[in-house]
Amino acid sequence: MSEQAGGTTRQGDGGPSPDGAVLSLAGISKRFGAVHALSDASLAVKAGEVVALVGDNGAGKSTMIKAIAGVNPADDGEILWEGRPVTITKPHDAATLGIATVYQDLALCDNLDVVANLFLGNEVANGIVLDEISMERRATELLDTLSVKIPSVRTPVASLSGGQRQSVAIARSLLGEPKVVLLDEPTAALGVAQTAQVLDLIERLRDRGLGVVLISHNLADVRAVADRVAVLRLGRNAGEFVMAETSQEQIVEAITGASESVVTRRQARVEAAEAARDVGQKRQASDPQEQS
């Protein structure tokens, strides 16, 4: 999906964010002592769009997510929510706006079943008695709409696979009807099939019209689901790309900050070897002239 297409879905939003972003951050700075974790960084996400936030270790991705989630507020900068300036100083602020965060270390209780984990902290109750029936129904509906496959919603989370657990964690974040979901390395610890499950789920979130901010180290995952890629390097924006029009090298270049780096050199070597093989084949086939 291109940037223009994303723009048309939210046209006429008005306000100071002309491209219709649900959430946009500008000039975000965060210092930890002498270290500038973020300086003048920006990020925007529209409804129905997956924005990947990539960068090397220490680039400021997690700091950015924590600033949005209110866990660790930014020192400086402007946050616009649906075009209105807002302040996020604690997790509760983010939750009230409609920002849900799924952290890297899954915040699930292994000894509780799926229903209890989904509703933990927001239980439905009649007086003091838990309304298990309503919770179980809502849990089943929610997982159904997300096409999350789980043996039974009464299974303890401990006996689920990594992908199922991640799906439950993501589903849990949706109960508050958020408009933006922040996912911190959702596929980091998963196998191939489980990663595919979670990527499918991310696409379903987009199809439901949510804005998704995805932090990932895995450029293959990013390529698979992201509409746009925002690159951070040493706490600053190092480029923003529309996925469909961008090559992997361009992203790597932005991440490492140089067209000449270990990664590109390696890539160049591989390509050179392939090219040489191609040339060899061609020469064999027909064209002796090319040699001079």
Partner: peptide, 24 residues
Amino acid sequence: KRTGYGLHIYAVGGNREAARRAGI
């Protein structure tokens, strides 16, 4: 087994950090 308080006891025992993040 039937109250939110009881569920929270199990939650804190299962994963205290998860319970804290859930607002307990």
